[in-house]
Write a protein that binds this DNA or RNA. Structure first.
Length: 661
RNA sequence: GCCGGGGUAGCUCAGUGGCAGAGCAACCGCCUUGUAAGCGGUAGGUCGUGGGUUCAAUCCCCACCCUCGGCUCCA
């Protein structure tokens, strides 16, 4: 026996080597480094594999300690808390079945089936939380063991969902969710918390439940088993869990802040638009204040498109069914369309997309290669029958307007055209204050698409190449393409880090085929153009909604419905205030005046709540000196500002974001 | 579409099987104000819609519409 068998050496992330008695665990290691580290430790990474703190370390291992305040650590906490949730539910609701309970962003969930199709109420969440706290207080260890699939099936004989997972793992057709739940086929891993509760799980977990406790159960929701709409619907409980009381409190505070900037709430508060019940679900009307912002967005869009070589077209909201038969929409997109209108001379549908109509414009006469690329642009209003449960304010709506364009080009032009489109999209998005993007390449879903493999391959390659040419990182979403072709979707991140899908660039070899589109090439041959679909805002409604949340209602000055409000200190200054207003109107600004029949403080407050960029206050001094008091949004008050100085400041503020590249 | 909440004044929300409530906003007066809520008064509701139960329904039951949180699906 070697003389050093009583010790092991492990290597730490900083490449230092530490000697420990043989049989030492990750927890021992953490303790040897420091008491605070041991307290914060929730798991280890041994040779790149996450494992429990209690696992004995091998000699020569590369080890790092996962602490609760890291992303990986919180993940472990959340997953462990999910087990505690399951235990509480199983104890409180006799006969309940539990299925899966992963950690997710900011928290975790667990899906259950309650006996007799019972559902959880909000009151249940309170009692479940209490039971969970008892389990935490009981300091139950998480004890890992591994067993054969057969033994595991015996352990979970009363848990059909667990058995299904074990069987899938055994058969080797486990998906990533299953693998997280059960480990591998030869060694199904389980974690036992007490005599009565054991769960299938790959781990790792915290050493014991006492390490948990900073959690909150958030909501109950229905969720299909394995995401299958035809399958059973389970009861899902969502929770959030954090490493400390303060981290939990901060998270709850962030949620409150996010709620305050909810576009649906802001739309009401700021009188921008509404969804009258009489109109039906998912249909909005724009009020004057929302309308002016929308107009400014549209003006900007039109200006950019005009400069970008686009031709403006207009098409109707309805079309004969034949059009959508030709385009394939009735075959592949019927569920997303409003129901047909039967008329004496045929059947009509509200259009769900503008592309077929743009194809008709292209086809109306013979085209030459000299005309290509032909870029047709329209702010086209479409109607889509989104399922009732999916509607969500402006972000998921049934009638909306796309800043839609279809670019007809030759195969040779395609790659350049896509590349310059990417520049165009990003430049427009940046003007609206978005700087953080995620790109997604969506590829073919064979069951829900038209066209040959070669054509799809070509189009997908062209999109991929454009992304690579720009050096952009992207993810691939297999099967997410439109039925007519692959696409690049661009998600933006808003001011508080949430992702929204807005812009899309789609490649289409199929509609030109279906509509028999042609151009005369240089060699006098008839050739088929390629069609690119693209929308920058995506939909004006969605973009507006995202913009509203991004800015929390505080639109940049160039977009603000009211840019300047003028307040007279007292009635005696009203006349001067009106002159200031007039001067600003002549300067082309959107300005108004609130007369002095309320306290100044109250009028200031009202104006601030409206998020007006500049509130001007004028009193005796200002009347005497032709000055104004400037109270800017988010800045400090300045008194005695010369009117011309303010005009310069305003012009700079507006011009900065307004000028077109 | 599915599961679970909800719909009461312009907004935010109380409330009850027996005449419908508050705060803010609105309107009218007073106050004439120097940077985020001055005072008093008035008005405002088919209690989402339609059916049912009941002597009596905003309240209990059913259906539908709209909406919220999810699932599924998507710009």
């Amino acid at each position: 026996m070697p003389s050093d068998s009583s010790v092991i050496k492990v290597r730490l992330p900083d490449d230092s080597v530490r000697e420990l008695p043989t049989g030492s665990t990750g927890l021992d290691l953490a303790q040897s480094i420091g008491k605070r580290l041991a307290q914060a430790a929730v798991a280890t990474v041994v040779n790149g594999v996450e494992s429990d703190l209690g696992v004995a370390l091998a000699d020569g291992a590369q080890v790092s300690i996962v602490t609760a305040d890291s992303d990986a650590g919180r993940h472990v906490l959340r997953h462990s808390t999910a087990h505690v949730l399951a235990q509480a539910v199983v104890q409180l609701f006799e006969g309940s079945k539990f299925s899966i309970g992963p950690a997710i962003e900011d928290g975790f969930y667990y899906d259950f089936e309650l006996p007799n199709n019972k559902t959880f109420s909000d009151a249940d969440l309170v009692s479940i939380t209490e039971r969970m706290q008892q389990i935490v207080a009981a300091d139950q260890p998480f004890v890992r063991s591994e067993m054969s699939a057969d033994d595991a099936l015996k352990v979970f004989k009363d848990q059909p969902y667990k058995c299904e997972i074990i069987q899938r793992v055994t058969k080797g057709d486990a998906d990533s969710v299953d693998a997280l739940e059960a480990g591998s086929a030869d060694a199904v891993s389980v974690y036992r918390n007490s005599e009565s509760f054991v769960d299938l799980c790959r781990g790792p977990h915290v050493p014991s439940t006492s390490r948990l406790g900073h959690f909150a159960l958030m909501k109950v929701a229905g969720a299909y088993w394995r995401g299958n709409e035809k399958g059973p619907m389970l009861q899902r409980i969502y929770g959030t869990a954090w490493e400390s009381k303060s981290a939990l409190a901060e998270h709850l505070h962030r949620l409150e802040e996010a709620e305050k900037r909810d576009h649906r709430r802001l739309a009401v508060e700021m009188d921008l638009l509404s969804f009258p019940q009489e109109l039906g679900g998912g249909l909005a009307v724009w009020h004057p204040k929302g309308g002016i912002v929308r107009k400014l967005m549209e003006d900007y869009s039109r200006e950019r498109h005009q400069n970008g070589g686009y031709k403006f077209v207009f098409t109707p909201h309805l079309a004969n069914a034949h059009l959508f038969e030709t385009s394939g929409h009735l075959q592949f997109y019927k569920d997303g369309m409003y129901p047909p209108m039967e008329m004496d001379n045929g059947t009509y549908y509200p259009k769900p997309m503008n592309c077929p109509m743009h194809c008709l414009i292209y086809r109306d006469r013979q085209r030459s290669y000299r005309e290509l690329p032909l870029r047709l642009f329209e702010l086209g209003t479409v109607y889509r029958y989104e399922r009732a449960g999916t509607l969500h304010g402006l972000l998921r709506i049934r009638g909306f307007t796309q800043d839609d364009s279809h670019i007809f080009c030759t195969e040779e032009q395609m790659a350049d055209e896509i590349a310059s489109l990417l520049d165009f999209v990003l430049s427009v998005l940046r003007r609206f204050g978005f700087n953080d993007f995620d790109f997604k390449l969506s590829t073919r879903n064979v069951d829900k698409s038209v066209g040959s493999d070669e054509i799809w391959q070509k189009a997908t390659d062209a999109l991929r190449e454009a992304l690579n040419r720009h050096g952009l990182q992207f993810t691939v979403a297999p099967g997410d393409a439109a039925f007519y072709g692959p696409k690049i979707d661009i998600d933006v991140r808003d001011a508080i880090g949430r992702k929204w899908q807005l812009s899309t660039i789609q490649c289409d070899f199929n509609l030109p085929e279906r509509f028999g589109l042609e151009y005369i090439a240089t060699d006098n041959a008839r050739k088929r153009p390629i069609m690119l679909h693209r929308a920058l805002f995506g939909s004006i409604e969605r973009f507006f909604g995202v913009l509203l949340e991004h800015y929390g209602g505080a639109f940049p000055t160039w977009l603000a419905p009211v840019q300047v409000r003028v307040l007279a200190v007292a009635s005696a200054h009203e006349e001067y205030a009106a002159k200031v207003v007039q001067q600003l109107i002549e300067g082309g600004y959107r300005v108004d005046q609130l007369v002095a029949d309320e306290q100044l403080g109250k009028r200031i407050r009202a104006s601030k709540l409206e998020r007006i960029p500049y509130v001007l206050v004028v009193g005796d001094d200002d009347v005497a000196n032709s000055t104004v008091g400037v109270n800017p949004r988010g800045g400090d008050v300045r008194r005695d500002v010369l009117m011309n100085d303010f005009l310069r400041q305003l012009s700079a503020d507006v011009g900065e974001t307004k000028s077109v590249a």
